[in-house]
Write a protein that binds this DNA or RNA. Structure first.
Lengths: 245, 245
DNA sequence: AGGTAAACTGACTGGTCAGTCATTAACTCG
DNA sequence: CGAGTTAATGACTGACCAGTCAGTTTACCT
């Protein structure tokens, strides 16, 4: 009765063929795998349309699944978003912690440089950029997710860096500085630059620099701020007026 | 015919009375003022709901105007958003430039401190925070607006700071450093911290610090990174291994 | 084979909301 | 005052889409 009764093997896989990851899961039973398939699809849709803009139909289509199936695994769109973010962040954390375990190195400066290589790689990955955009743009509607992000990503990363700073100070490599504040400064520099690097067209200064260039520039600047303050001891070369602190 | 024919003086100004700025413009002729009234209302609605979340009906209600009236002045919701952002940013730029003109001061450090007081105040104002959130979260859907933001806010601010840095280097106050890069570092530090300060609940370290505390902490750190590098000249006090650059 | 449960489907519903337009109010000027 | 013009209104339309559920398919058992 209906105009076109689309059967299972209908001959209209137009866009589907263009998209890389649309496997045909139809009627293939593998319920264990379903949530992750859906979350992966959701990641991409949320990535380029945001929470409000993403359509469940599109997520379903991308996952190779019917819309109803999504509701077998997630109570609603918001929960799907929540789990997608949480899942992505957890992957990110694990990357970061693996990084830490790999650096039982020598000097604090060296350790910082080593950590920042991996940390930067992580910040610059698509996966993180997408979450970052959502965190900044939409996550204030989800206070608990925001808190989760603050605790499990920001604070954890900061603790990691803070420990290295403290060690560097103790060894006399770095000046005396509150480790938490110092870690925050590094976060700020890298976070913001990772965002700007994703919008290179807009920022001529970054357009010609590679990711690695930017990271080095960042770290050189940062390490300068951490160097012990010799000015009091050293020869009075510069006659700069010293204002208050 | 209709159930409740809401006349002009109907007795249900429930929320209206609570809201501060809902004047009754109905039928009062002042077409010159209309666009700005609407943009102001739009600012508030976009602020707490984002582009997708804001409802034209609510904007109209807040502006004390009927929905149709909005369409007399703006072709659609997107254009309204566009103009709202552009208008807000222009106001921001004017604030920043007024700041620059006020500082014909002495040392570069002093000038930097002075500029950063006003710059920080501007970054921390609601008006900017809202735009910032949208820029980071939704503006990638509007490449031309993004470009406008990059050129007229980011680049302009950077040029301003860059000039001060260059002057400081010339005077021997600061070490030799690429002014543009140095300006970018300051932007990164302040931008990111301004965001974090708006989410204080999430960041224990900032929870107990006032805006001014944060600004000072930031600037002290930053100026440290700009100090001339005396280590080569000075007494070899610290036996830190010097790795590559 | 036949039966049953679990997995999955997609047409449908109901609510929401951007954008329209016929109508009305206010103002102007002859 | 009343004819004409401009400003403003808000009920309505049509599209869109989250979420539902009656029905279908598959897997797995006797």
């Amino acid at each position: 009765m209906l105009p076109v009764m689309t059967t299972v093997q209908d001959p209209t896989p137009l866009q589907e063929l263009a998209l890389p990851e649309v496997a045909d899961h139809r009627r293939r039973r593998d319920p264990e795998a379903r949530p992750q398939q859906i979350l992966d699809a959701a990641f991409h849709e949320f990535a380029d349309r945001g929470l409000a803009g993403a359509r469940l139909d599109d997520i379903a289509k991308r996952a190779g699944v019917a819309k109803g199936t999504i509701y077998l695994y997630f109570p609603n769109k918001e929960a799907l978003f929540r789990e997608m973010v949480r899942g992505t962040l957890i992957a990110a954390i694990e990357t970061a912690e693996q990084t830490r375990d790999e650096t039982a190195s020598d000097s604090a400066e060296m350790q910082l440089r080593q950590i920042s290589v991996n940390w930067w790689r992580f910040l610059r990955a698509d996966r993180f950029q997408v979450v970052q955009r959502m965190v900044l743009g939409e996550l204030h509607h989800f206070p608990d997710l925001m808190q989760f992000y603050a605790d499990e990503v920001v604070a954890r990363g900061r603790r990691l860096i803070g420990a290295v700073i403290a060690r560097g100070t103790a060894r006399g490599e770095f000046r005396v500085i509150e480790p938490d504040a110092a870690a925050r400064m590094l976060s700020a520099l890298t976070m913001m630059h990772s965002i700007w690097c994703s919008r290179r067209q807009c920022f001529p200064a970054l357009a010609n620099a590679s990711d690695d260039d930017v990271r080095n520039e960042l770290l050189d600047f940062y390490l300068h701020a951490l160097r012990p303050d010799h000015t009091v001891v050293s020869v009075g070369l510069s006659s700069v007026e010293r204002h208050d602190l």
